[in-house]
Design a protein around this nucleic acid. Structure first.
Length: 388
RNA sequence: GCGGGUAUAGUUCAAUGGUAGAACACCAGUUUGUGGCACUGGGUAUGAGGGUUCGAUUCCCUCUACUCGCC
């Protein structure tokens, strides 16, 4: 269950999600543990960084290690030994990016998607129903509908077709969701939250249409437990073809979503993008940036002590950080700590010179410490947004 | 001591009587519902001296260094 309220002052959303596995407050950021782990980090690392929820991926886990194995292990939480919350992504994005990148990769019909595993070439089929079943098997706290995310370059007409298919599939996902709740005898208190996904690319009219139709679908299947979608996601990329943040689309799309539903900006983003989305009313975020860029040696550095920044500083766009590429030669003789305003395991113990040495030596300790630091940074600035 | 071989980028190797390439390393950039060490771009070299030639990294001589074999 969850609740959303507006702050008295300032008009910013503040939500509370309560599940059998914990209580979390919005806005929050989730690192991507796509295949059941955040690369290079342990669960203890994640906890210390302040991570409460991980995003895992239906598509990747289905292909490897497979759902049977995870069921045998007693569910994903037990398999990966994570005692926080889990959100699973439906796999829609992965299947479609696979197919859009390489048309040999599979075939899309209204029934579902047939695709070839890039691991061993075997043929698989994912449907809305199957994606939901898998997400129940994973045993997550929050799940996402199987959707059809069009590339941002698609025409209005092609984007509209993706919206229609997303709507068709959302209804099937929700029906399957309710079937699974009954079949598995899951109580009202323990039911996972379910998110639909708003598509429509860069076209505002399609985003609005998609959000309205999804809302209708949610209401058409309500019962004594279920009062409409628990949350709505912003689907596909939020950047235009030039890589610019599509501010208006994000802002308007948030306004198309019922006030009392959670709003999940999938794949967002840079700190700036997250802050803007928060100001538009989005509650939840996930992105590979802190971990991927950390692995490649880019680190987020505070400009000042975190406690010296207020939520209004962030919202007016005050620069509160800069980034460094620790591989750069200029850090070779830099014996300062990586970030004097950070208290993570890296910054409290090791110098920039040493971290550079770890990267240059290709030792996994480098990417590990950098990923850890960036997650600390992300969790810390999200705390400023929560004003906690 | 005698005989042979080699010498090209930081490293390991190509090629050529007329603009010297690659891999790795190095330097920098990119990263947005993951891309595990990824992707894009960049700089850097013919051991020294002499000769032949319009022109030599290439052919010839000397030296030096390394290397192999023999005594």
């Amino acid at each position: 269950m969850f609740e959303i309220k507006r702050r008295k002052k300032g008009e910013f959303r503040e939500g509370k999600i309560i599940t059998k596995n914990g209580v979390i407050f919005t806005p929050f950021f989730m690192p991507d543990a796509t295949r059941g782990f955040v690369k290079f980090l342990t669960n203890e690392d994640l906890k210390i960084a302040g991570v409460e929820t991980l995003v895992v991926n239906t598509y990747h886990l289905y292909l490897d290690p497979g759902i049977e194995l995870i069921k045998k292990a007693g569910g994903l939480r037990k398999f990966i030994n994570w005692n926080g919350l889990l959100l699973s992504d439906s796999g829609g994005y992965q299947v479609f990016s696979l197919i859009h990148k390489n048309s040999q990769g599979g075939k899309i019909t209204d029934e579902g998607v047939i695709f070839k595993s890039p691991l061993d070439g075997s043929i698989h089929k994912l449907t809305p129903e199957k994606s939901i079943q898998i997400q129940f098997d994973l045993g997550v706290d929050m799940m996402v509908c199987f959707d059809d995310p069009p590339p941002v370059s698609f025409s209005w007409e092609k984007t509209r077709q993706a919206v229609e298919r997303t709507l068709l599939w959302a209804k099937r996902c929700l029906m399957e969701y309710q079937r699974q709740l009954k079949k598995r005898k899951i109580t009202k208190e323990n039911r996972p939250l379910i998110f639909s996904v708003i598509q429509g690319g860069k076209y505002l009219d399609l985003r609005e249409y998609c959000a309205r139709e999804l809302t209708k679908i949610g209401l058409s299947l309500k019962n004594e437990w279920f009062f409409g979608w628990d949350g709505y996601g912003f689907g596909a990329r939020h950047l235009d073809e030039q890589g610019n943040f599509m501010a208006e689309v994000l802002e308007k799309t948030a306004s198309f979503i019922p006030e009392n539903a959670l709003r999940f900006a999938l794949g967002v983003g840079t700190p700036e993008d997250i802050i803007k989305c928060f100001s538009y009313g989005w509650d939840m975020f996930d992105c590979v940036i802190p971990t991927r860029e950390g692995r490649h040696g880019r680190l987020f550095i505070w400009k000042d002590k975190p406690e010296n920044f207020s939520v209004s500083d962030l919202l007016v766009g005050k620069k509160f950080y800069f980034t460094i590429n620790i591989n750069n030669e200029k850090y070779k003789n830099d014996f300062n700590v990586v970030d004097e305003n950070c208290d993570c395991q890296l910054c409290s113990k090791y110098s920039r010179s040493y971290l550079r040495h770890l990267f240059k030596s290709n030792d996994p300790l480098g990417p590990r410490l950098a990923s850890l630091h960036n997650l600390h940074f992300y969790q810390r600035f999200m705390r400023i947004l929560r004003q906690k």
